[in-house]
Design a protein around this nucleic acid. Structure first.
Length: 570
DNA sequence: GCCGTTTTCGGCCCGACTGTTTTCAGTCG
Protein backbone atom coordinates (compact mmCIF):
# COMPACT_ATOMS: atom_id res chain seq x y z
CA UNK A 1 0.00 0.00 0.00
CA UNK A 2 1.94 3.02 -1.23
CA UNK A 3 -1.01 5.38 -1.67
CA UNK A 4 0.16 7.79 1.01
CA UNK A 5 3.73 7.83 -0.30
CA UNK A 6 2.59 8.73 -3.81
CA UNK A 7 0.12 11.33 -2.53
CA UNK A 8 2.90 12.97 -0.49
CA UNK A 9 5.14 13.17 -3.55
CA UNK A 10 2.39 14.92 -5.52
CA UNK A 11 1.72 17.35 -2.68
CA UNK A 12 5.42 18.14 -2.59
CA UNK A 13 5.54 18.71 -6.34
CA UNK A 14 2.54 21.05 -6.05
CA UNK A 15 4.35 23.14 -3.41
CA UNK A 16 7.51 23.28 -5.47
CA UNK A 17 5.69 24.26 -8.65
CA UNK A 18 3.82 26.95 -6.79
CA UNK A 19 7.02 28.57 -5.55
CA UNK A 20 8.42 28.36 -9.06
CA UNK A 21 5.41 30.36 -10.22
CA UNK A 22 3.90 27.64 -12.38
CA UNK A 23 0.34 27.82 -13.67
CA UNK A 24 -2.05 27.63 -10.69
CA UNK A 25 -4.15 25.05 -12.50
CA UNK A 26 -1.24 22.74 -12.89
CA UNK A 27 -0.53 23.06 -9.17
CA UNK A 28 -4.14 22.32 -8.44
CA UNK A 29 -4.07 19.26 -10.70
CA UNK A 30 -1.28 17.77 -8.56
CA UNK A 31 -3.11 18.54 -5.31
CA UNK A 32 -6.36 17.11 -6.60
CA UNK A 33 -4.64 13.93 -7.71
CA UNK A 34 -2.86 13.65 -4.35
CA UNK A 35 -6.12 14.01 -2.49
CA UNK A 36 -7.77 11.37 -4.67
CA UNK A 37 -4.95 8.90 -4.12
CA UNK A 38 -4.91 9.56 -0.39
CA UNK A 39 -8.55 8.60 -0.02
CA UNK A 40 -8.56 5.76 -2.53
CA UNK A 41 -10.38 2.63 -1.40
CA UNK A 42 -7.99 0.17 -2.99
CA UNK A 43 -4.23 -0.27 -3.22
CA UNK A 44 -2.78 1.93 -5.95
CA UNK A 45 -0.20 -0.70 -6.85
CA UNK A 46 -3.01 -3.12 -7.68
CA UNK A 47 -4.76 -0.47 -9.76
CA UNK A 48 -1.49 0.17 -11.55
CA UNK A 49 -0.87 -3.50 -12.34
CA UNK A 50 -4.41 -3.77 -13.69
CA UNK A 51 -3.66 -0.80 -15.94
CA UNK A 52 -6.54 1.20 -14.52
CA UNK A 53 -4.80 4.31 -13.19
CA UNK A 54 -6.49 6.52 -15.78
CA UNK A 55 -9.88 5.56 -14.41
CA UNK A 56 -9.12 7.52 -11.23
CA UNK A 57 -10.62 10.99 -11.67
CA UNK A 58 -7.88 13.60 -11.83
CA UNK A 59 -5.25 11.16 -13.09
CA UNK A 60 -4.41 11.75 -16.74
CA UNK A 61 -1.68 10.55 -19.00
CA UNK A 62 1.19 12.49 -17.40
CA UNK A 63 0.35 11.63 -13.79
CA UNK A 64 -0.31 7.98 -14.59
CA UNK A 65 3.14 7.79 -16.09
CA UNK A 66 4.68 9.37 -13.00
CA UNK A 67 2.87 6.97 -10.69
CA UNK A 68 4.20 4.10 -12.78
CA UNK A 69 7.71 5.44 -12.45
CA UNK A 70 7.41 5.69 -8.66
CA UNK A 71 6.06 2.15 -8.36
CA UNK A 72 8.65 0.66 -10.71
CA UNK A 73 11.76 2.55 -9.63
CA UNK A 74 10.93 3.88 -6.17
CA UNK A 75 11.76 7.41 -7.21
CA UNK A 76 10.64 10.18 -9.53
CA UNK A 77 13.09 11.93 -11.81
CA UNK A 78 10.82 14.98 -12.11
CA UNK A 79 10.72 15.52 -8.34
CA UNK A 80 14.50 15.17 -8.01
CA UNK A 81 14.90 17.84 -10.67
CA UNK A 82 12.49 20.24 -8.97
CA UNK A 83 14.19 19.74 -5.62
CA UNK A 84 17.48 20.85 -7.14
CA UNK A 85 15.87 24.10 -8.22
CA UNK A 86 14.15 24.84 -4.91
CA UNK A 87 15.82 23.80 -1.63
CA UNK A 88 13.76 21.85 0.89
CA UNK A 89 13.61 24.52 3.59
CA UNK A 90 12.07 27.02 1.19
CA UNK A 91 8.91 24.90 0.92
CA UNK A 92 8.58 24.88 4.69
CA UNK A 93 8.58 28.68 4.74
CA UNK A 94 5.03 28.48 3.39
CA UNK A 95 3.83 26.95 6.65
CA UNK A 96 4.31 30.37 8.25
CA UNK A 97 0.92 32.11 8.41
CA UNK A 98 0.86 34.96 5.91
CA UNK A 99 3.54 33.50 3.68
CA UNK A 100 2.28 32.06 0.44
CA UNK A 101 4.11 30.98 -2.69
CA UNK A 102 4.57 34.50 -4.09
CA UNK A 103 6.23 36.07 -1.08
CA UNK A 104 8.23 32.92 -0.41
CA UNK A 105 9.60 33.04 -3.95
CA UNK A 106 10.63 36.69 -3.48
CA UNK A 107 12.42 35.83 -0.22
CA UNK A 108 14.34 33.04 -1.91
CA UNK A 109 15.17 34.84 -5.12
CA UNK A 110 16.05 38.27 -3.73
CA UNK A 111 17.63 37.38 -0.39
CA UNK A 112 18.56 33.74 -0.90
CA UNK A 113 16.63 32.71 2.21
CA UNK A 114 16.47 28.93 2.38
CA UNK A 115 14.92 28.12 5.77
CA UNK A 116 13.01 29.51 8.72
CA UNK A 117 16.20 30.24 10.71
CA UNK A 118 17.55 32.50 7.97
CA UNK A 119 14.18 34.16 7.54
CA UNK A 120 13.98 34.95 11.23
CA UNK A 121 17.42 36.51 11.20
CA UNK A 122 16.68 38.59 8.10
CA UNK A 123 13.39 39.83 9.56
CA UNK A 124 15.04 40.78 12.84
CA UNK A 125 17.64 42.77 10.93
CA UNK A 126 14.90 44.62 9.04
CA UNK A 127 15.94 43.29 5.68
CA UNK A 128 12.47 42.33 4.50
CA UNK A 129 10.70 45.69 4.58
CA UNK A 130 12.25 46.99 1.35
CA UNK A 131 11.32 43.98 -0.77
CA UNK A 132 8.57 44.34 -3.39
CA UNK A 133 5.19 43.76 -1.78
CA UNK A 134 6.67 43.75 1.73
CA UNK A 135 6.57 46.46 4.37
CA UNK A 136 7.29 47.04 8.04
CA UNK A 137 4.02 45.38 9.04
CA UNK A 138 4.63 42.33 6.87
CA UNK A 139 8.03 41.98 8.47
CA UNK A 140 6.53 42.13 11.93
CA UNK A 141 3.78 39.67 10.99
CA UNK A 142 6.32 37.21 9.67
CA UNK A 143 8.19 37.30 12.97
CA UNK A 144 4.94 36.80 14.83
CA UNK A 145 4.03 33.98 12.44
CA UNK A 146 7.32 32.20 13.13
CA UNK A 147 6.78 32.54 16.85
CA UNK A 148 3.26 31.16 16.54
CA UNK A 149 4.46 28.27 14.43
CA UNK A 150 7.08 27.38 17.01
CA UNK A 151 4.56 27.59 19.82
CA UNK A 152 1.52 26.09 18.14
CA UNK A 153 0.79 22.45 18.02
CA UNK A 154 -0.41 20.75 14.89
CA UNK A 155 -3.97 19.69 14.52
CA UNK A 156 -5.76 18.72 17.73
CA UNK A 157 -7.96 15.73 18.46
CA UNK A 158 -11.60 15.96 17.46
CA UNK A 159 -12.66 15.62 21.09
CA UNK A 160 -10.75 18.71 22.22
CA UNK A 161 -12.10 20.89 19.41
CA UNK A 162 -15.60 19.52 20.00
CA UNK A 163 -15.48 20.57 23.67
CA UNK A 164 -14.08 24.03 22.88
CA UNK A 165 -16.59 24.52 20.07
CA UNK A 166 -19.58 23.48 22.17
CA UNK A 167 -18.65 25.88 24.95
CA UNK A 168 -18.18 28.75 22.51
CA UNK A 169 -21.51 28.10 20.83
CA UNK A 170 -23.21 28.16 24.25
CA UNK A 171 -21.47 31.45 25.04
CA UNK A 172 -22.45 33.08 21.73
CA UNK A 173 -26.05 32.00 22.16
CA UNK A 174 -26.07 34.40 25.11
CA UNK A 175 -26.00 37.34 22.69
CA UNK A 176 -29.51 38.47 21.76
CA UNK A 177 -28.52 39.46 18.23
CA UNK A 178 -27.49 35.90 17.34
CA UNK A 179 -30.40 34.55 15.31
CA UNK A 180 -28.99 31.24 14.21
CA UNK A 181 -25.70 29.52 15.02
CA UNK A 182 -23.83 26.40 13.98
CA UNK A 183 -20.42 24.85 14.03
CA UNK A 184 -19.03 24.58 10.49
CA UNK A 185 -15.77 23.41 8.93
CA UNK A 186 -13.97 20.13 9.62
CA UNK A 187 -15.40 20.05 13.14
CA UNK A 188 -18.92 19.82 11.70
CA UNK A 189 -17.69 17.09 9.38
CA UNK A 190 -16.26 15.43 12.53
CA UNK A 191 -12.83 14.76 11.10
CA UNK A 192 -10.53 12.84 13.44
CA UNK A 193 -8.25 15.84 13.90
CA UNK A 194 -9.13 19.51 13.64
CA UNK A 195 -6.96 22.43 12.55
CA UNK A 196 -9.27 25.25 13.64
CA UNK A 197 -12.85 25.77 14.73
CA UNK A 198 -15.31 27.47 12.38
CA UNK A 199 -18.49 28.97 13.77
CA UNK A 200 -21.25 30.49 11.68
CA UNK A 201 -23.85 32.96 12.95
CA UNK A 202 -26.72 34.75 11.24
CA UNK A 203 -27.57 38.20 12.48
CA UNK A 204 -28.65 41.67 11.40
CA UNK A 205 -26.11 43.31 13.73
CA UNK A 206 -22.71 41.71 13.10
CA UNK A 207 -20.47 44.33 14.74
CA UNK A 208 -21.88 43.80 18.22
CA UNK A 209 -21.46 40.06 17.88
CA UNK A 210 -17.80 40.41 16.88
CA UNK A 211 -17.19 42.61 19.94
CA UNK A 212 -18.97 40.05 22.13
CA UNK A 213 -16.97 37.18 20.59
CA UNK A 214 -13.53 38.65 21.27
CA UNK A 215 -14.51 39.19 24.92
CA UNK A 216 -14.89 35.42 25.43
CA UNK A 217 -12.85 34.46 28.49
CA UNK A 218 -10.55 32.00 26.67
CA UNK A 219 -9.55 34.36 23.85
CA UNK A 220 -5.78 34.79 23.93
CA UNK A 221 -5.13 36.80 20.80
CA UNK A 222 -7.15 38.50 18.04
CA UNK A 223 -5.80 37.77 14.56
CA UNK A 224 -8.28 39.65 12.36
CA UNK A 225 -11.51 41.42 13.17
CA UNK A 226 -13.97 42.54 10.51
CA UNK A 227 -17.73 42.80 10.24
CA UNK A 228 -18.18 39.40 8.59
CA UNK A 229 -15.11 37.50 9.72
CA UNK A 230 -13.14 37.49 12.96
CA UNK A 231 -10.36 35.09 13.93
CA UNK A 232 -8.90 34.54 17.38
CA UNK A 233 -6.52 32.17 19.11
CA UNK A 234 -7.76 30.52 22.29
CA UNK A 235 -5.57 29.99 25.34
CA UNK A 236 -5.13 26.33 24.46
CA UNK A 237 -3.69 27.33 21.06
CA UNK A 238 -6.71 26.54 18.89
CA UNK A 239 -7.76 29.08 16.29
CA UNK A 240 -11.44 29.99 16.00
CA UNK A 241 -12.96 31.70 12.96
CA UNK A 242 -16.35 33.33 13.43
CA UNK A 243 -18.40 34.36 10.40
CA UNK A 244 -21.57 36.38 10.52
CA UNK A 245 -24.02 36.45 7.61
CA UNK A 246 -27.56 37.70 6.99
CA UNK A 247 -30.39 35.25 7.77
CA UNK A 248 -31.29 34.70 4.11
CA UNK A 249 -27.75 33.45 3.50
CA UNK A 250 -27.32 31.24 6.56
CA UNK A 251 -27.92 27.94 4.78
CA UNK A 252 -25.69 28.80 1.85
CA UNK A 253 -22.94 30.02 4.16
CA UNK A 254 -23.24 26.90 6.32
CA UNK A 255 -22.91 24.76 3.22
CA UNK A 256 -19.96 26.77 2.04
CA UNK A 257 -18.04 26.95 5.32
CA UNK A 258 -18.62 23.32 6.20
CA UNK A 259 -16.60 22.21 3.17
CA UNK A 260 -14.71 20.19 2.41
CA UNK A 261 -13.02 22.36 -0.14
CA UNK A 262 -13.04 19.51 -2.67
CA UNK A 263 -16.72 18.83 -2.04
CA UNK A 264 -17.56 22.50 -2.59
CA UNK A 265 -15.63 22.74 -5.82
CA UNK A 266 -17.65 19.81 -7.17
CA UNK A 267 -20.88 21.39 -5.94
CA UNK A 268 -20.06 24.64 -7.69
CA UNK A 269 -19.08 22.94 -10.90
CA UNK A 270 -22.33 21.01 -10.87
CA UNK A 271 -24.25 24.23 -10.21
CA UNK A 272 -22.58 25.93 -13.19
CA UNK A 273 -23.59 23.04 -15.44
CA UNK A 274 -27.17 23.52 -14.35
CA UNK A 275 -27.09 27.28 -14.92
CA UNK A 276 -26.60 28.39 -11.32
CA UNK A 277 -23.93 30.14 -9.32
CA UNK A 278 -23.35 29.04 -5.73
CA UNK A 279 -21.51 31.18 -3.21
CA UNK A 280 -21.77 31.73 0.52
CA UNK A 281 -24.73 34.10 0.02
CA UNK A 282 -26.98 31.73 -1.82
CA UNK A 283 -27.80 29.96 -5.03
CA UNK A 284 -28.34 32.36 -7.94
CA UNK A 285 -29.39 31.99 -11.55
CA UNK A 286 -26.24 32.48 -13.54
CA UNK A 287 -27.69 34.85 -16.15
CA UNK A 288 -30.07 36.97 -14.12
CA UNK A 289 -28.35 36.84 -10.71
CA UNK A 290 -31.78 36.01 -9.29
CA UNK A 291 -31.69 34.55 -5.74
CA UNK A 292 -33.01 31.01 -5.79
CA UNK A 293 -32.17 29.60 -2.35
CA UNK A 294 -29.93 30.08 0.66
CA UNK A 295 -31.81 30.35 3.93
CA UNK A 296 -31.59 26.65 4.72
CA UNK A 297 -28.82 24.30 3.80
CA UNK A 298 -31.22 21.64 2.47
CA UNK A 299 -32.52 24.17 -0.10
CA UNK A 300 -29.05 24.70 -1.48
CA UNK A 301 -28.64 21.02 -2.30
CA UNK A 302 -32.21 20.76 -3.54
CA UNK A 303 -31.85 23.79 -5.83
CA UNK A 304 -29.12 22.08 -7.80
CA UNK A 305 -30.94 18.78 -7.91
CA UNK A 306 -29.26 16.96 -5.03
CA UNK A 307 -30.42 14.91 -2.10
CA UNK A 308 -29.29 16.47 1.21
CA UNK A 309 -25.74 15.35 2.02
CA UNK A 310 -24.81 14.89 5.69
CA UNK A 311 -21.70 16.90 6.72
CA UNK A 312 -19.71 13.75 7.56
CA UNK A 313 -20.01 12.61 3.94
CA UNK A 314 -18.74 15.81 2.34
CA UNK A 315 -15.26 14.69 1.36
CA UNK A 316 -15.78 14.26 -2.39
CA UNK A 317 -15.55 10.49 -2.12
CA UNK A 318 -18.49 9.84 -4.41
CA UNK A 319 -21.26 11.35 -2.26
CA UNK A 320 -22.28 13.91 -4.90
CA UNK A 321 -22.76 11.27 -7.58
CA UNK A 322 -24.97 9.22 -5.24
CA UNK A 323 -26.92 12.31 -4.14
CA UNK A 324 -27.75 12.96 -7.80
CA UNK A 325 -29.35 9.52 -7.94
CA UNK A 326 -30.99 9.91 -4.54
CA UNK A 327 -29.06 6.88 -3.32
CA UNK A 328 -27.07 8.11 -0.33
CA UNK A 329 -26.86 5.75 2.65
CA UNK A 330 -29.12 6.56 5.57
CA UNK A 331 -26.35 7.15 8.13
CA UNK A 332 -26.41 5.73 11.63
CA UNK A 333 -27.76 8.41 13.98
CA UNK A 334 -26.06 9.81 17.08
CA UNK A 335 -28.91 8.48 19.26
CA UNK A 336 -29.20 4.94 17.96
CA UNK A 337 -26.67 3.21 20.20
CA UNK A 338 -28.22 0.84 22.71
CA UNK A 339 -25.12 -0.12 24.67
CA UNK A 340 -21.35 -0.14 24.92
CA UNK A 341 -19.29 -3.35 24.98
CA UNK A 342 -15.87 -1.88 25.61
CA UNK A 343 -15.82 -0.71 29.23
CA UNK A 344 -13.01 -1.29 31.74
CA UNK A 345 -14.00 -1.61 35.40
CA UNK A 346 -11.92 -1.39 38.55
CA UNK A 347 -11.42 -5.13 38.26
CA UNK A 348 -8.53 -4.16 35.94
CA UNK A 349 -7.33 -0.66 35.05
CA UNK A 350 -10.69 1.16 35.00
CA UNK A 351 -11.68 3.55 37.77
CA UNK A 352 -15.39 2.78 38.14
CA UNK A 353 -17.03 -0.20 39.79
CA UNK A 354 -19.42 -2.46 37.91
CA UNK A 355 -22.34 -0.98 39.88
CA UNK A 356 -21.35 2.56 38.94
CA UNK A 357 -21.00 1.58 35.30
CA UNK A 358 -24.44 -0.04 35.32
CA UNK A 359 -26.03 3.01 36.92
CA UNK A 360 -24.34 5.33 34.45
CA UNK A 361 -25.42 3.12 31.55
CA UNK A 362 -29.02 3.46 32.72
CA UNK A 363 -28.59 7.22 32.83
CA UNK A 364 -27.41 7.16 29.21
CA UNK A 365 -30.54 5.21 28.28
CA UNK A 366 -28.62 2.06 27.35
CA UNK A 367 -30.15 -1.41 27.36
CA UNK A 368 -26.83 -3.01 28.24
CA UNK A 369 -23.25 -2.36 29.29
CA UNK A 370 -20.39 -4.70 28.50
CA UNK A 371 -17.53 -5.05 30.97
CA UNK A 372 -14.33 -5.90 29.08
CA UNK A 373 -11.30 -5.96 31.37
CA UNK A 374 -7.77 -6.88 30.34
CA UNK A 375 -6.49 -10.44 30.37
CA UNK A 376 -3.77 -12.04 32.47
CA UNK A 377 -0.63 -11.24 30.53
CA UNK A 378 -1.25 -7.51 30.38
CA UNK A 379 0.26 -6.92 33.81
CA UNK A 380 0.66 -3.13 33.36
CA UNK A 381 -3.13 -2.83 33.16
CA UNK A 382 -3.77 -5.23 36.05
CA UNK A 383 -4.93 -7.96 33.70
CA UNK A 384 -6.96 -10.63 35.45
CA UNK A 385 -5.65 -14.14 36.02
CA UNK A 386 -7.90 -17.03 35.02
CA UNK A 387 -8.83 -17.72 38.66
CA UNK A 388 -9.63 -14.08 39.35
CA UNK A 389 -11.66 -13.68 36.21
CA UNK A 390 -13.86 -16.66 37.06
CA UNK A 391 -14.54 -15.05 40.42
CA UNK A 392 -15.33 -11.77 38.69
CA UNK A 393 -17.86 -13.40 36.39
CA UNK A 394 -19.69 -14.90 39.37
CA UNK A 395 -19.72 -11.59 41.25
CA UNK A 396 -21.05 -9.63 38.32
CA UNK A 397 -23.86 -12.17 37.86
CA UNK A 398 -24.84 -11.35 41.45
CA UNK A 399 -24.67 -7.56 40.82
CA UNK A 400 -27.01 -8.11 37.87
CA UNK A 401 -29.80 -9.13 40.20
CA UNK A 402 -30.08 -5.54 41.46
CA UNK A 403 -30.30 -3.93 37.99
CA UNK A 404 -32.73 -3.79 35.08
CA UNK A 405 -29.98 -2.85 32.64
CA UNK A 406 -28.22 -5.95 31.35
CA UNK A 407 -24.59 -6.27 32.44
CA UNK A 408 -22.72 -8.36 29.90
CA UNK A 409 -19.48 -9.89 31.12
CA UNK A 410 -16.72 -9.90 28.56
CA UNK A 411 -13.00 -9.54 28.27
CA UNK A 412 -10.47 -7.67 26.20
CA UNK A 413 -8.25 -10.68 25.79
CA UNK A 414 -4.71 -10.28 24.51
CA UNK A 415 -3.62 -11.92 21.32
CA UNK A 416 -0.24 -13.46 22.08
CA UNK A 417 2.61 -13.06 19.56
CA UNK A 418 1.92 -16.51 18.14
CA UNK A 419 -1.75 -15.66 17.53
CA UNK A 420 -3.15 -17.77 20.36
CA UNK A 421 -5.38 -16.20 23.00
CA UNK A 422 -4.22 -15.22 26.46
CA UNK A 423 -7.03 -17.24 28.14
CA UNK A 424 -7.66 -20.90 27.45
CA UNK A 425 -10.82 -21.75 25.51
CA UNK A 426 -12.30 -23.25 28.67
CA UNK A 427 -12.18 -19.76 30.20
CA UNK A 428 -13.18 -17.85 27.08
CA UNK A 429 -16.40 -19.82 26.78
CA UNK A 430 -17.56 -18.48 30.14
CA UNK A 431 -17.82 -14.88 28.88
CA UNK A 432 -20.85 -13.31 27.21
CA UNK A 433 -18.52 -11.86 24.61
CA UNK A 434 -14.81 -11.77 23.80
CA UNK A 435 -12.76 -8.94 22.38
CA UNK A 436 -9.39 -9.94 20.92
CA UNK A 437 -6.73 -7.24 21.08
CA UNK A 438 -3.06 -6.54 20.40
CA UNK A 439 -1.20 -4.74 23.19
CA UNK A 440 2.31 -6.16 22.82
CA UNK A 441 4.99 -6.76 20.19
CA UNK A 442 3.84 -4.01 17.83
CA UNK A 443 6.89 -4.19 15.64
CA UNK A 444 6.36 -7.51 13.91
CA UNK A 445 6.62 -7.75 10.14
CA UNK A 446 3.49 -7.07 8.17
CA UNK A 447 3.09 -10.73 7.27
CA UNK A 448 3.63 -11.99 10.83
CA UNK A 449 1.25 -9.42 12.33
CA UNK A 450 -1.44 -10.20 9.78
CA UNK A 451 -1.13 -13.95 10.42
CA UNK A 452 -1.17 -13.36 14.17
CA UNK A 453 -4.45 -11.46 14.02
CA UNK A 454 -6.08 -13.76 11.47
CA UNK A 455 -5.29 -16.73 13.73
CA UNK A 456 -6.99 -14.99 16.64
CA UNK A 457 -10.07 -14.25 14.56
CA UNK A 458 -10.30 -17.96 13.77
CA UNK A 459 -10.74 -18.77 17.46
CA UNK A 460 -14.38 -19.79 17.82
CA UNK A 461 -14.90 -17.75 21.00
CA UNK A 462 -13.67 -14.41 19.62
CA UNK A 463 -16.53 -12.04 18.76
CA UNK A 464 -14.83 -8.68 18.28
CA UNK A 465 -11.43 -7.36 17.23
CA UNK A 466 -10.55 -4.31 19.36
CA UNK A 467 -8.80 -1.25 17.84
CA UNK A 468 -7.76 -3.25 14.76
CA UNK A 469 -4.72 -1.23 13.66
CA UNK A 470 -3.38 -0.08 17.04
CA UNK A 471 -2.64 3.48 16.02
CA UNK A 472 -2.60 6.35 18.51
CA UNK A 473 -3.27 9.60 16.68
CA UNK A 474 -0.24 11.88 16.84
CA UNK A 475 1.73 9.40 18.98
CA UNK A 476 2.03 6.00 17.39
CA UNK A 477 1.47 4.80 13.84
CA UNK A 478 -0.68 1.79 13.11
CA UNK A 479 1.29 -1.43 13.27
CA UNK A 480 2.23 -2.97 9.94
CA UNK A 481 -0.76 -5.06 8.98
CA UNK A 482 -2.76 -5.99 5.89
CA UNK A 483 -6.09 -4.42 6.79
CA UNK A 484 -7.83 -5.90 3.79
CA UNK A 485 -6.84 -9.43 4.84
CA UNK A 486 -8.06 -8.71 8.37
CA UNK A 487 -11.38 -7.55 7.00
CA UNK A 488 -11.68 -10.69 4.88
CA UNK A 489 -10.83 -12.88 7.87
CA UNK A 490 -13.42 -11.08 9.98
CA UNK A 491 -16.02 -11.79 7.31
CA UNK A 492 -14.96 -15.42 7.11
CA UNK A 493 -15.16 -15.98 10.86
CA UNK A 494 -18.17 -13.82 11.67
CA UNK A 495 -16.12 -11.46 13.80
CA UNK A 496 -17.19 -7.84 14.27
CA UNK A 497 -14.49 -5.20 13.80
CA UNK A 498 -14.42 -2.46 16.38
CA UNK A 499 -14.54 1.22 15.73
CA UNK A 500 -12.79 2.27 18.90
CA UNK A 501 -14.23 5.62 19.98
CA UNK A 502 -11.43 6.67 22.32
CA UNK A 503 -10.39 10.11 21.00
CA UNK A 504 -6.76 9.30 20.21
CA UNK A 505 -7.62 5.93 18.67
CA UNK A 506 -10.66 6.21 16.36
CA UNK A 507 -9.61 2.85 15.01
CA UNK A 508 -10.80 1.54 12.53
CA UNK A 509 -10.69 4.91 10.81
CA UNK A 510 -13.34 6.16 8.40
CA UNK A 511 -11.71 4.83 5.22
CA UNK A 512 -11.21 1.33 6.65
CA UNK A 513 -14.70 1.30 8.13
CA UNK A 514 -16.13 1.97 4.69
CA UNK A 515 -13.94 -0.76 3.24
CA UNK A 516 -15.28 -3.20 5.85
CA UNK A 517 -18.87 -2.18 5.19
CA UNK A 518 -18.41 -2.64 1.46
CA UNK A 519 -17.17 -6.16 2.13
CA UNK A 520 -20.19 -6.87 4.31
CA UNK A 521 -18.38 -7.06 7.66
CA UNK A 522 -20.28 -6.09 10.79
CA UNK A 523 -18.88 -3.47 13.13
CA UNK A 524 -19.24 -2.55 16.76
CA UNK A 525 -18.52 0.84 18.31
CA UNK A 526 -16.78 0.69 21.69
CA UNK A 527 -15.55 3.55 23.86
CA UNK A 528 -12.67 1.75 25.61
CA UNK A 529 -13.85 3.70 28.66
CA UNK A 530 -11.59 3.65 31.71
CA UNK A 531 -13.87 5.97 33.69
CA UNK A 532 -17.54 6.94 33.61
CA UNK A 533 -16.76 10.16 31.74
CA UNK A 534 -15.22 8.19 28.93
CA UNK A 535 -18.55 6.55 28.14
CA UNK A 536 -19.46 9.82 26.44
CA UNK A 537 -16.77 9.23 23.81
CA UNK A 538 -19.36 7.13 21.97
CA UNK A 539 -20.23 10.14 19.79
CA UNK A 540 -16.73 10.19 18.29
CA UNK A 541 -17.00 6.55 17.32
CA UNK A 542 -20.39 7.21 15.74
CA UNK A 543 -18.78 10.11 13.87
CA UNK A 544 -16.19 7.76 12.38
CA UNK A 545 -18.96 5.33 11.45
CA UNK A 546 -20.89 8.10 9.72
CA UNK A 547 -17.76 9.27 7.91
CA UNK A 548 -17.37 5.64 6.81
CA UNK A 549 -20.91 5.68 5.34
CA UNK A 550 -22.21 3.19 7.92
CA UNK A 551 -25.89 2.66 8.48
CA UNK A 552 -27.70 1.46 11.58
CA UNK A 553 -27.71 -2.12 10.30
CA UNK A 554 -23.91 -2.14 9.98
CA UNK A 555 -23.33 -1.52 13.70
CA UNK A 556 -24.05 -4.28 16.19
CA UNK A 557 -24.67 -2.12 19.23
CA UNK A 558 -27.62 -0.39 17.61
CA UNK A 559 -29.45 -3.68 18.10
CA UNK A 560 -31.80 -4.40 20.95
CA UNK A 561 -30.67 -6.69 23.75
CA UNK A 562 -32.75 -9.54 22.35
CA UNK A 563 -31.12 -9.36 18.96
CA UNK A 564 -27.69 -9.12 20.53
CA UNK A 565 -28.27 -12.16 22.70
CA UNK A 566 -29.32 -14.10 19.62
CA UNK A 567 -26.17 -12.99 17.83
CA UNK A 568 -23.63 -13.46 20.60
CA UNK A 569 -24.76 -15.64 23.41
CA UNK A 570 -24.19 -19.28 22.97
C1' DG B 1 -2.06 18.83 -15.78
C1' DC B 2 -7.04 17.44 -16.45
C1' DC B 3 -11.19 17.30 -18.94
C1' DG B 4 -15.57 17.58 -22.24
C1' DT B 5 -24.71 16.36 -22.86
C1' DT B 6 -22.28 23.78 -24.81
C1' DT B 7 -15.44 22.44 -25.88
C1' DT B 8 -9.84 17.71 -28.05
C1' DC B 9 -8.71 23.76 -27.00
C1' DG B 10 -9.64 26.78 -23.58
C1' DG B 11 -11.43 26.76 -19.77
C1' DC B 12 -10.39 25.45 -14.65
C1' DC B 13 -14.75 28.08 -7.39
C1' DC B 14 -15.16 32.40 -5.16
C1' DG B 15 -15.18 36.13 -1.78
C1' DA B 16 -13.11 38.57 2.69
C1' DC B 17 -9.34 40.62 4.79
C1' DT B 18 -4.73 42.72 4.97
C1' DG B 19 -1.14 45.42 3.59
C1' DT B 20 0.51 47.47 0.06
C1' DT B 21 -0.92 49.77 -3.57
C1' DT B 22 -3.37 54.55 -5.13
C1' DT B 23 -6.67 50.47 -7.80
C1' DC B 24 -4.74 45.81 -6.41
C1' DA B 25 -1.97 41.49 -5.29
C1' DG B 26 -1.35 38.00 -2.04
C1' DT B 27 -3.14 34.94 1.28
C1' DC B 28 -6.61 32.23 3.28
C1' DG B 29 -10.33 29.18 3.71
Amino acid sequence: MRNQEIASIFYEIADLLEIKGELPFKVRAYRRAAQRIETLDGDIEDIYSEGKLREIPGIGEALAKKIGEIIETGRLEYLERLKKEVPEGVVRLMSIPGLGPRKTAVLYKKLGIKNIEELKKAAEQGKLRDLDGFGVITEKNILRGIEMLERSRDRVLLSMAFEDGSHLVDYLKGNRDVLNISIAGSLRRMKETIGDIDILVSSLKPEGIMDFFVKYQDVYQILVKGSTKTSVILRDGLQVDLRVVKPESFGAALQYFTGSKEHNIQIRNLAIKKGFKVNEYGVFEKDTEKYVAGKHEEEVYKAIGLQYIEPELRENRGEIELAQKNKLPRLIGYNEIKGDFHIHSNWSDGSASVEEIARFGEKLGYEFVGIADHSASLKVAYGLSEEKVMKKIKEIRRVQERFDIRILVGTECDIKPDGTMDYRDSVLKEFDFVYAAIHTRFKMSRREMTERIVKALENEYVNFLAHPTGRLIGRRDAYEVDVEKIIDAAKENNVFLEINAFPDRLDLNDVHAKMAKDKGVGMVIGTDAHSLDHLRFMRYGIAVARRGWLEKKDVLNTCSLNEIERTLLR
